[in-house]
């Protein structure tokens, strides 16, 4: 498989002078997590309260101004941090669970199951990513669970492919042969012996997929197919403020900057995680 070879074989680019950037990225992620947890303490207004002050510029009373519904942008941004992170993490976790488990079960069950599953993986990958999520979102009631499930399914191939690549590598190791000699079944070897050993690769993949899930959630929301309009995820905020770009650019800029900053930081952190995790991996290789 193309993606498997691409991700399985690739090495991190050794980058000069990325040390401080990685540190800054970790700091940004830490701050975002703190903000997500402390949003009720830091917020100055009720993020769901409508007022008559529509599209007010930043200043007195409203730190970052108000949006087209008169809602406080600053407070919505704070609450949106937790929501956007939670939806992204939820989708990425679901993708990990579906992708890794399905791949391990299919690989343990043998050729026909493997062929069927990875045929399905091909199917999902043949559809442009967002189109699959779109189809899922419209097929079920729109809402939080649907968005998480749709993104979880459409990102699961990432985990299925990495699971297959690492599984094959682990099955060539002496310890799986030893387990087989001791009489362990294929399923037991896959779940009890191989799974803990590929956990590192899965966590690395999670770190890479997480920012993409957050971005995809915002794209779905932007297209009007994500969470309901009242829920202040960043994508939803961007979507509802875009028609008023001229009157209230701050209401669009604030969530765009927050979204870009956090996904940027998460991607740098993901790269750092991947760089670390590859040290033992490359030593394993013949």
């Amino acid at each position: 498989m193309t993606l498997a070879t691409a991700t399985g074989r690739s090495r991190r680019i050794a980058l000069p002078g990325l040390g401080p950037l990685t540190a800054a990225a970790f700091a940004i992620v830490a701050v975002a997590l703190l903000v997500a947890l402390a949003a009720p303490l830091l917020a100055t207004h009720d993020p769901y309260a409508f007022t008559a002050d529509l599209n007010q510029p930043p200043g007195e009373g409203h730190l970052l101004g108000t949006d087209d519904q008169g809602q406080d942008v600053y407070s919505r941004l704070l609450y949106g941090t937790g929501l956007s992170l939670a939806f992204g993490a939820g989708a990425a976790l679901l993708a990990l669970a579906i992708g890794a488990l399905a791949a391990l079960l299919a690989l343990a069950a043998g050729r026909p199951a493997e062929w069927a599953l990875f045929g399905f993986v091909d199917l999902i990958r043949a559809l442009p990513g967002i189109l699959f999520a779109l189809a899922c979102v419209v097929a079920f009631e729109p809402g939080i669970a649907t968005v998480v499930i749709a993104l979880g399914i459409s990102f699961s191939p990432h985990f299925a492919l990495i699971t297959r690549a690492t599984y094959l590598h682990q099955m060539a190791q002496p310890y799986t042969a030893a387990a087989r000699v001791l009489g362990a079944g294929r399923l037991r070897i896959a779940l009890v012996h191989v799974l803990p050993n590929i956990a590192g690769a899965l966590i690395t993949q999670f770190a890479i997929v997480l920012p993409r899930c957050i971005v995809s959630e915002s794209v779905l929301s932007f297209l009007g197919l994500g969470v309901s309009p009242e829920t202040p995820t960043w994508g939803r905020m961007i979507a509802s403020a875009t028609p008023y770009l001229e009157e209230a650019p701050h209401a669009v800029l604030a969530p765009i900057l927050a979204l870009s900053l956090v996904t940027f930081a998460l991607a740098i952190v993901g790269n750092a995680v991947r760089r670390r995790s590859e040290l033992p991996l490359s030593r394993d290789l013949p």
């Binding site: 920012p211 993409r212 971005v215 915002s218 794209v219 932007f222 961007i238 875009t242 770009l245 669009v252 800029l253 765009i256 979204l259 870009s260 996904t263 940027f264 998460l266 991607a267």
Partner: peptide, 12 residues
């Protein structure tokens, strides 16, 4: 390409 959503750059 990984982190900056194209739609937000479009809006900018």
């Amino acid at each position: 390409s990984i982190t900056v959503p194209t739609f937000s750059i479009g809006i900018l």
